[in-house]
Computed example of a mutant assay.
Amino acid sequence: MNGRTFSVVICVYTEDRWTDILAAVESVRRQSLPALETLVVVDHNPRLLERLTEEFTAGPEAAGPGGEVRVLANAGPRGLSAGRNTGISVARGEFVAFLDDDAVAEQDWLRHFAEGYDDPRVTAVGGRTLPVWASGRRPAWFPEEFDWVVGCTYRGLAPGRVPVRNVLGGNASFRRTAFDAVGGFATGIGRDGDKRPLGCEETELCIRLGRALPDAVLLMDDRAVIHHKVPAVRERFRYFRTRTYAEGLSKALVSHSVGSGKGLETERRYTTRVLPAGVVRGLRDALLGRPGGARRAGAIVVGVAAAAAGYAVARARARSGVAFSHGPITTYAPRPEAGTP
């Protein structure tokens, strides 16, 4: 583990998260395994770019511990994928880690990532993301099986350090060389400022990575923990329904890109084993008089139906030649010579 260097990429887009962004950067600076650099990539927001540049190039913040903080403008089209690709293209570390702009990493986050790379076959290591609810506690109706709706680790993932098909993008790391093999995150799949909360760009990347490097191992290590804020609007059932529908759209895009075999491999187990068990658990809780049991069971059913509807709509539009993404799916990343600023 000694001598391993990490570039940490944090993609940002709105001044509304100013305090969260500073907290995310500070959590990287406090790592027990110091990062080589933190790359803050601003998504087409000149005012935020100017403000962050001022924050991290002058005054005491510029001289803080934990590696250099570099503020960059997204060099590609609007969106999370292009922002991540911008960070990848200039990263100088042997490994590239990604942290959400409204999350903070625990002190040993990078150290646990680094331990995973003791095995030279390991190409990516992801971690566990815990929700920090705006209301102070989980809504009684919100099933843990759907914590992915709010960008967090969900019930059904195996504990410990285990091989997975894909890591979760807001809490993940990759060997820098992985991107030489696959070219970066696909644009046209994930979020790009559109009102629809699309996702799955990390799933598509990991599937391509597995195809390009058949011996590659992707790990999930639940000791690499971050705490992710869940704003009040995302605690509401309306957002839950919208996000699960958008997930169906996103899965259709992934399947279109990499095929339904790998594109839905993990989802089949999730929908046939994890979710039915969640419904049974919710109904049992209702019979025992525990708060929210019936509502959790109902939310699971609604979530499955909404995702299935989104998937069906997207596939039907694709067959009819109607665009159902917010742009062409491309896997190009703006990549000057590795390690150049």
Score class of each variant (00 low, 15 high):
residue 126 G to N: 08
residue 129 T to N: 05
residue 130 L to A: 10
residue 130 L to R: 05
residue 131 P to F: 12
residue 132 V to F: 05
residue 134 A to Q: 11
residue 135 S to C: 03
residue 136 G to S: 05
residue 137 R to I: 07
residue 137 R to V: 03
residue 137 R to Q: 11
residue 138 R to Y: 10
residue 139 P to I: 05
residue 140 A to H: 15
residue 141 W to M: 10
residue 142 F to T: 02
residue 143 P to M: 08
residue 143 P to S: 10
residue 144 E to W: 08
residue 144 E to Y: 10
residue 144 E to V: 15
residue 145 E to D: 09
residue 146 F to T: 01
residue 146 F to Q: 08
residue 148 W to E: 01
residue 149 V to K: 06
residue 149 V to G: 11
residue 149 V to T: 07
residue 150 V to D: 01
residue 151 G to C: 13
residue 151 G to H: 03
residue 152 C to G: 03
residue 152 C to T: 13
residue 153 T to F: 05
residue 155 R to E: 15
residue 155 R to I: 07
residue 156 G to F: 00
residue 157 L to M: 13
residue 158 A to F: 13
residue 160 G to W: 12
residue 161 R to I: 00
residue 163 P to Y: 03
residue 164 V to Q: 02
residue 164 V to H: 00
residue 164 V to F: 00
residue 165 R to S: 06
residue 166 N to S: 10
residue 167 V to H: 04
residue 167 V to E: 01
residue 174 F to P: 03
residue 175 R to L: 09
residue 175 R to P: 14
residue 176 R to Y: 13
residue 177 T to N: 15
residue 177 T to Y: 12
residue 177 T to H: 14
residue 179 F to P: 13
residue 180 D to F: 06
residue 180 D to Y: 10
residue 181 A to S: 12
residue 181 A to H: 14
residue 181 A to V: 09
residue 182 V to F: 03
residue 183 G to N: 03
residue 187 T to A: 04
residue 188 G to A: 09
residue 191 R to Q: 11
residue 191 R to E: 11
residue 193 G to V: 15
residue 194 D to V: 12
residue 196 R to A: 15
residue 197 P to L: 13
residue 198 L to K: 15
residue 201 E to G: 14
residue 202 E to Y: 12
residue 202 E to Q: 13
residue 203 T to I: 12
residue 203 T to Y: 12
residue 207 I to P: 00
residue 208 R to N: 08
residue 208 R to E: 04
residue 208 R to D: 01
residue 211 R to G: 02
residue 211 R to L: 01
residue 212 A to R: 00
residue 212 A to I: 00
